[in-house]
Design a binder for these strands. Structure first.
Lengths: 225, 225
DNA sequence: TATAATTCTTAAGCAAATTTTAAGGCTACT
DNA sequence: AGTAGCCTTAAAATTTGCTTAAGAATTATA
């Protein structure tokens, strides 16, 4: 799930980004209207949601919203506005936004509204497993046959990604994009290193690895039939 | 738990009533706005939740909502709306509702939202504990194995937050938001300082801390299995 | 009201863990 | 056999958290 934030106040922008990243979203940031519009238009099909500040240097939120709407009808847009009369909000909605939220807002509320718009509202899966391995998002734990396994943050995200896509091929480019949040072509051996780390922690010596290599493509964790 | 449904479409009304009754709620039904408002006002303190249709013959949902809000501030109200632009929902919230749900909705989702709103009204837990540590909201005291522990206000709130989320990860962003009420300050080191203080007061030298650090994410207090 | 005490926040140095880079060896495929 | 892609390892770079101490801010006390 990828989110674009267009917000010039860096304190707010960073806070929101941090929070959303902790929740597992990948986040792009633009600190002015022009950049924001550019990003939005360039990656219009990529974003699952756009958070738009109302007042922006250069190009204001409404104009961005209108322009985006001309290109793509469906991406949900939420206005972040400091103005406090309802009329403004209505104006924002008329320009094609889906929701708005007034500053200062609580992160929780923002998240709730995002979830509503993403229809992600249905209680999210919090436990993933494959074989005797279990990953719990809420507790942030991984166990292998009852025994806890200590994973670093990146190891955890990578395993989570595999388990969310259990049975499916996970392409290297996708992995880099989803787990490392890098969206341009990037050839690096980080993945290899982390696959190695995961295997060391999760596999039993002698047995075949829980993570299958698919040469030239990526990796896969088999679903237990 | 008593719920009032104000809804003119009998098929929906019955569907929801059946479902809620099976879940153990007692349900009152009104099939038009006037009856609905009457019931709501007559039994204002009785209802734990009100489900309000948006478009109603006679008196519409918003008006009912506004009137009810004038009499009683706290009864949770959920709008059921067939309109499909979000600005309607926003208006609904503006008029004092707590949540809204769009038709067609799954019963499951409705139930989930009801539970969320009711949880806020539930008689609150007043004592939290983990291991030999006990925190009493009412008395505003903390003890470690019978012995009192003196905590400052912030230390107390932080510990309270951990204990309310015993067993789950507490992400830094959430902590800053819930305990410090800061919405735009994600990289503050206050947390570290207070973690340090809590550990000094609660941990036993030599033993592992009651508060586990989850690098890159936050902290956690393990639930005593 | 002034002063003292306590509590809260900021900042900085340090330590440690994580992440990335890089390089050489290995393996499967053509 | 050659080669591209993958594995493994180790060291460099970076991030993150811990600990302190000092200055602000708040609260209590004289």
């Amino acid at each position: 799930m990828r989110i674009l934030i267009v917000e010039d106040e860096t304190s707010i922008a960073n806070f929101v980004r941090e929070g959303l990243m902790e929740e597992g979203f990948s986040v792009d940031l633009a600190d002015n209207g022009k950049k924001g519009l550019q990003l939005a238009l360039d990656n219009i099909t990529e974003y699952d949601i756009i958070l738009l500040d109302w007042m922006l240097p250069g190009l204001n939120g409404i104009e961005i919203c209108r322009t985006v709407r001309k290109e793509n009808k469906s991406v949900p847009i939420i206005f972040l506005t400091a103005k406090d009369t309802v009329d403004d909000a209505v104006f924002g909605l008329e320009s094609g936004a889906n929701d708005y939220i007034r500053k200062p807002f609580s992160f929780e509320e923002l998240l709730a509204r995002i979830r509503v718009l993403m229809r992600k509202n249905e209680t999210e899966l919090l436990v993933f497993s494959a074989g005797d391995i279990e990953l719990n998002i809420d507790k942030h734990t991984v166990t292998k046959g009852e025994k806890p396994v200590e994973l670093t943050q990146k190891e955890f995200s990578l395993l989570e990604y595999f388990l969310r896509n259990k049975g499916k091929v996970c392409r290297r480019t996708r992995i880099i994009e989803k787990v490392w949040d890098l969206h341009f072509d990037y050839d690096s051996s980080v993945i290899d290193v982390y696959i190695n780390a995961l295997r060391k922690k999760l596999d039993e010596p002698g047995k075949t690895s829980i993570i299958t290599t698919i040469r030239g493509i990526g990796y896969k964790i088999e679903s237990d039939e």
